[in-house]
């Protein structure tokens, strides 16, 4: 069992299954309506450029935590949605939420680049009160509250490799 990134953060019997990029992509492809949520840590350019590749692949992406300003600088602001993560999670909990496109809620939500403990709590809310949604963390942190999660990565290079692998695999079609 992987150690939660914040070591005491053991929520209960249900903890995320650790997945490889390949397994993640498999799950992703099963989803009907995925949503990528990114947060303040995409201020790191190497990470942001990778997110932008995911956006270019057509994944609906929401900038939270004030990260929209980086997308504005990169000219990506028209391609992303903006929300406060707390508000967004609250809407995701509502099965009847109309979504950003007005056509309904999402079924697979991916967290990336969000302050660890904030993301952990939002994943907990989704785990416990949103049975209609599967959650995935492709963070450099192991997130026990997600359904599936990468394991902890302390080195940037390795983490970016995993994200790159995702980009490649999703783009393969």
């Amino acid at each position: 069992m992987e150690t939660p990134y914040d070591i005491g953060n053991i929520p209960g019997p249900k903890m995320a299954r650790v997945v490889t990029p390949e397994e993640f992509v498999k799950q992703f492809k099963k989803a009907k309506k995925p949503l990528l949520i990114v947060g303040s840590e995409i201020s790191q350019e190497e990470l942001r450029k990778r997110v932008e590749k995911l956006i270019d692949l057509g994944i609906t992406t929401v900038a939270t935590g004030g990260s929209i300003r980086y997308f504005v600088e990169d000219g990506y602001d028209e391609k992303v949605e903006v929300a406060v993560l707390h508000e967004l999670t609250n809407m995701l909990l509502d099965e009847n939420w109309k979504g950003f496109d007005g056509e309904g809620n999402y079924d697979f939500v991916i967290f990336l680049g969000i302050t660890y403990y904030l993301a952990s709590q939002m994943l907990s809310a989704l785990k416990n009160f949103a049975p209609h949604i599967k959650t995935a963390s492709i963070e450099r942190y192991y997130h026990p509250n997600a359904d599936i999660s990468f394991k902890n990565q302390f080195k940037d290079e390795k983490f970016f490799q995993m994200v790159d692998e995702i980009i490649d695999k999703i783009g393969e079609e």
Partner: peptide, 25 residues
């Protein structure tokens, strides 16, 4: 302003009936 909950712990251990798993409400 509906209460929004993000549990920090999915279990409850306040009495000896437990420890109870409350995951998924």
């Amino acid at each position: 302003y509906k209460p929004f909950y993000a549990p920090y712990d999915d279990t409850c251990s306040l009495c000896t009936l437990g420890k109870c798993d409350l995951t998924g409400n």
